[in-house]
């Protein structure tokens, strides 16, 4: 199980949880498992083709998976996975 950190903007889609433990050997498998549990996340994280949306970054232990192996990036138990969508707010 890896722990996925859910940013505030996505928490409404996961019943308010801040972290969710999901099984999977790759980032893609984790996200598939996460989306299976919480289907409303699908359009927020993935394109219709199943790719990561370009406005969502995924970090494994602080490293951007775009520069690792993308959705194929291997994850191990106790790895910390963070979803990070862009935020606009400048406190208007």
């Amino acid at each position: 199980m890896s722990t996925v950190w859910i940013p505030q903007v996505l928490r409404a889609s996961v019943g308010g949880a801040k972290t969710i433990d999901v099984p999977g050997a790759t980032v893609g498998a984790l996200i598939t498992a996460l989306v299976a549990q919480h289907p409303t996340l699908h359009s927020q994280l993935l394109t219709d083709e199943g790719e990561l949306n370009r406005f969502v970054n995924v970090y494994v232990n602080g490293q951007d998976v775009r520069y690792l192996g993308g959705l194929e990036t291997a994850v191990e138990d106790r790895d910390e996975v963070r979803l990070l969508p862009a935020m606009a707010g400048g406190a208007a």
Partner: peptide, 25 residues
């Protein structure tokens, strides 16, 4: 480089829509 594309509006509400705790900014 960080965000190659912006999210759709419903995924990134600004503070005037979503609110913000004043000390955070």
């Amino acid at each position: 480089c960080l965000y190659p594309a912006p999210p759709p509006p419903e995924l990134a509400p600004g503070c005037s829509v979503a609110g913000v705790l004043g000390v955070v900014p």
